[in-house]
Design a protein around this nucleic acid. Structure first.
Length: 935
DNA sequence: GCTATCACG
DNA sequence: GACGTACGTGATAGCC
């Protein structure tokens, strides 16, 4: 044992910097056997190995340690609550890897040090000071400029990336002052990364100039009055306090209380068994081979070897026992629950599923929770099952035996569900997250097998658990109907006998875990990791919040409208019956068809495949020019629709407790990446007709608040202009021109100032037609013109904008070759039907043309929504609804303009930085007491 | 449970 | 030469 002193050389590795560099520099990697993300761990180990093997010459370490941060709150947060406040959240795939890097360090037999509530930098500073005082030398392995103040008197830094030592000269090069003056410069210049304010308008260059002129920050501030430049003088005088605070923030603490000494850090050889054991547990094949070579050992055999670089097999299913519902455990006491929680913590992940009394997360009760950690080993924790009925039909209100008290169970589970180091895996996690939120648990981090499937398989099949289980695990889960029954005699889950519930519920968690282990490594290979992690998963908490917020709906407004509609319908019905000469059900297309075409003998009756006459709006509109009856039916239908679907149904959806309507968004509902809204659908509230639009008056802001709506202007056409690279369109958007008028002008050679509304209308129809995969027939029907004329328009359009034709051809060719198309953000939409013959081919082709455009627009608003909570954090505003290209907010009166500024900024910049669009994104805003006024 | 119809982007 | 079409959704009513 060597006493640390002269001749000793301490190397201090900045562990966090190593991890982040490893995480960001390397592609995501998951452990093959179970899907655990381990890319950063591998990178970390490799960097450690390379550092130890590196020939350090005269600078070889006699003592070494890896220093980590611990805890997010330090004394600097007490000095300044905004310190490091702009730090991005740690990526969710990185969190579970942090404890593994600690284990890796220990496996290399290197001292691994951290102290709760202290930054690694302060520990490094303290150790450096101690080592220097003892007469030894120090190498700090980091390129972090915050550590540069420590350089000098035997302390140097080493940039492992550039393989370069940083000494006094290196620091002076960077800061323009000697190391002991670095904090003074930093105090003035501030640091945007750590959110240190500094002096506004003064950067490193100016700061160095000032410090060198006055000798120190204190001298400078004392003599600030004498500064010649007025702006600079004013800043230094006015911001003095802020500058002094900044100095305290950047000054490292050499007095950190340590529970170890320098002697504890002496270099030790690794124990080959431990190190190789760890590496093979992580399944790092090439790394363990390399390390084994250095150690002169046999490389450990890692089962299920896939040669690196070779194509992995199609089937990734880890060897797992068959699914056996009899094998699941019922958790009936706290001791058993604690065991499961402990196991989940050890493992770093757990599949979770909740059972409830209904499907409405806002109004149902929690009945039980199932967990699964290893395939085949799952449990169910019954919490609110009712005791079996003894005599009556309605069952008992008493709780069944053998259940843990719900509050106690949730109290025990909360730390696990909120533990950043434990991944919570679910199928449709938004549902479970909303349930837990009602019980005060913010579940995170999460993975969602439904969303993984959606990212990889959109267009191929659905993403419900039953579909996925049958498709990927060849297993049909126990149908919920077998427990609940169906129809009138259907019971709620709390009435299901606990023993049956265990099998069903635990099986769901088991299946979810197995799907996760299968999907996780596939994401990267399918090149959709970024889509999943950036566009699907982060939307879960955002949508959960929006759905829970709901929107206030005025029942009286709806009720009055329903009454008025009722009267109007009765009146129309009477007129229709009179015109028909008999009484019939106006709402029955079959009966209506017979009246119109058989009894009245009108022309143009066409029977569809079911043998019934078509009576759609387009048919009736044609007939309406000659007869009153079809015109009245059209009126009747419009009102009937508004009443049944909106003014009546919406009232049923007003939540008793909140007085608001809470929709539910399907993240994986639409193939293109769009959301879908259900129960109720708030994405199709009428707006186009005057009468329909009045329904929006029932969507209101509460007293003292305002509804604010922001919507993207022409987003799909802008995306088309960018993707198809149409210069004329791009320029028109940049110039803020009327795009439909401009199209008309180009096509029909009409000068812009002579444009008629009719010509513009036709050009608009063509522009939209292009987005949908235009056809002569479709355009003809839409514009009600002969097909030949429509085809003429299209021909002229393609002649004028050959790029559009080229884009459409290229997209179809791509789809044919790859059986998929992609958005600008890498979202994949599969198009298996593209190879079909017959009419289906036409459908598939148009869908393939539309999907990248619609999907890119969907990606953009998703990005905006994901960034929105942080952007409006400081405002008294809530995001309530999304309607494809519109976001609706509720905001306290007075803050409307601040909200519009903040939200517009996020929306207009939502494509960046991944995609730089050639056209600007423009967002229009409106506000008012109700949705009609805000739109 | 399927089909027709119609509300939205 | 015929096929039969605008893209993406969800809710409701009628009907079998």
């Amino acid at each position: 044992m060597t006493q640390f002193g002269k001749g000793c050389h301490l190397h201090l590795i900045d562990g966090s910097a190593f991890i982040f560099r490893a995480f960001h520099a390397l592609p995501p990697l998951t452990r093959k056997s179970d899907g655990m993300p381990v890319g950063a761990v591998q990178g970390f180990c490799d960097m450690l190995r390379r550092y130890l093997d590196h020939d350090h010459g005269n600078d070889a370490p006699t003592h070494i340690a890896v220093i980590f941060d611990k805890g997010s709150h330090t004394f600097r947060n007490d000095l300044y609550d905004q310190y490091k406040a702009n730090r991005e959240e740690m990526p969710e795939d990185l969190r579970p890897q942090i404890p593994l890097t600690r284990r890796a360090t220990e496996a290399f037999n290197i001292a691994c040090k951290e102290i709760e509530g202290f930054e690694a930098d302060d520990i490094i500073a303290t150790l450096s000071c101690q080592a220097r005082e003892a007469g030894g030398r120090v190498t700090i392995v980091s390129s972090d400029k915050d550590l540069m103040q420590l350089v000098g008197d035997g302390v140097e830094m080493f940039d492992a990336m550039k393989n370069r030592r940083i000494d006094r000269e290196g620091v002076e090069e960077k800061f323009g002052v000697s190391p002991d003056k670095v904090v003074d410069v930093q105090a003035l210049a501030g640091d945007s990364v750590d959110n240190v304010p500094g002096a506004p308008g003064i950067g490193i260059k100016t700061a160095a100039l000032l410090i060198n002129e006055w000798g120190s920050l204190e001298e400078l501030l004392e003599n600030a009055e004498q500064i010649k430049q007025p702006k600079r003088r004013q800043t230094l005088i006015e911001k003095r306090e802020q500058i002094e605070l900044s100095k305290r923030l950047v000054q490292l603490d050499c007095e950190t209380p340590l529970e170890f000494t320098l002697d504890d850090l002496e270099v030790r050889d690794p124990d080959p068994e431990t190190l190789l054991g760890f590496l093979s547990e992580m399944e790092f094949r090439s790394l363990s081979k390399r390390v084994a070579e250095t150690l002169g050992r046999e490389a450990p055999v890692i089962p299920d070897t896939t040669p690196e670089g070779a194509n992995p097999p199609e089937d990734d299913a880890p060897d797992a026992p068959p699914i056996d519902p009899e094998a699941y455990e019922q958790v009936s006491d706290m001791a058993a629950l604690e065991r499961w929680i402990e196991k989940a913590r050890d493992r770093g992940w757990v599949a979770v599923d909740t059972e409830t009394t209904g499907l409405n997360e806002m109004a149902c009760g929690l009945v039980g929770i199932s967990l699964c950690i290893e395939a085949g080993e799952a449990c169910y924790i019954p919490l609110a099952h009712r005791a079996a009925a003894t005599d009556d039909l309605f069952g008992s209100d008493d709780l069944a035996e053998g259940q843990i008290d719900m509050d106690k169970a949730l109290e025990a589970l909360k730390p696990l569900f909120e533990d950043p180091a434990v991944m919570k895996i679910g199928q449709n996690m938004k549902y479970d997250a909303k349930i837990f939120a009602r019980y005060g648990i913010e579940i995170a981090p999460i993975d969602d097998t439904m969303l993984m499937s959606y990212a990889m398989n959109a267009g191929l099949h659905g993403h419900g658990m039953d579909t996925l289980s049958e498709r990927y695990l060849s297993h049909t889960p126990i149908p919920i109907k077998s427990l609940l029954g169906s129809g009138k005699s259907q019971i709620t889950f709390d009435r299901v006998p606990v023993a049956d519930a265990v099998k069903y519920a635990a099986e769901d968690a088991d299946i979810t875990l197995r799907l996760w282990q299968l999907f996780k490594p596939q994401l990267h290979r399918a090149h959709v990791t970024r889509v999943y992690e950036g566009l699907e998963r982060p939307l879960v908490p955002v949508l959960a919040q929006m759905e829970m917020a709901g929107i206030k709906v005025d029942r009286d407004v709806l009720s009055r409208m329903s009454g008025a509609f009722n009267q109007k319908m009765a009146q129309l019905e009477e007129e229709i019956h009179e015109l028909a000469g008999e009484s019939f059900n106006v709402g029955s297309p079959k009966q209506l068809g017979e009246i119109l075409f058989d009894k009245m003998g009108l022309e143009g009756g066409k029977k569809g495949k079911t043998g019934a006459y078509a009576t759609g709006a387009d048919v009736l509109e044609d007939l309406a020019t000659e007869h009153d009856l079809p015109a009245r039916v059209l009126d009747w239908r419009q009102i009937s629709k508004l009443k049944s679907t909106y003014t009546d149904a919406l009232q049923e959806h007003i939540n008793k407790e909140t007085g608001r309507v809470h929709t539910s968004y399907l993240i994986a509902g639409a193939n293109t990446g769009r959301l879908a809204s259900t129960d109720p659908n708030l994405q199709n509230i009428p707006v186009r007709s005057e009468e329909g639009r009045r329904i929006r008056e029932a969507f209101v802001a509460p007293e003292g608040k305002t509804l604010v709506s922001l919507d993207y202007s022409q987003i799909e056409l802008r995306i088309l202009a960018h993707m198809a690279e149409i210069d004329a369109l791009k320029q028109a958007f940049r110039d803020g021109q009327d795009i439909h008028a401009m199209t008309a002008s180009e096509m029909f050679n009409v000068p812009m100032d002579e444009m008629t509304p009719e010509v513009r209308r036709q050009a608009k129809a063509i522009n939209f037609g292009v987005i949908y995969g235009i056809s002569g027939f479709g355009l003809a029907r839409n514009l009600r013109i002969p097909r030949s004329e429509a085809q003429g328009f299209i021909d002229r359009y393609f002649e004028r904008f050959p790029g559009i034709k080229a884009y459409m051809d290229e997209t179809t060719a791509f789809a044919k070759e790859h059986k998929r198309v992609e958005t600008l953000f890498g979202r994949v939409i599969h198009t298996p039907e593209i190879a079909a013959k017959g009419p289906r081919a036409g459908f598939a082709k148009r869908a393939a043309i539309n999907a990248p455009i619609q999907g890119t627009a969907a990606d953009i608003i998703r990005r905006a929504m994901i960034r929105m909570p942080e952007a409006i954090e400081s405002l008294p505003a809530t995001m309530l609804l999304q309607v494809h290209d519109e976001l609706l907010f509720e905001v306290e009166a007075g803050a409307e303009d601040s909200l519009i500024d903040a939200a517009r900024k996020v929306m207009e910049a939502a494509a960046e930085p991944v995609v730089k669009l050639d056209v600007p994104l423009v967002v229009d805003a409106g506000q008012g007491a109700n949705w009609a006024a805000a739109h």
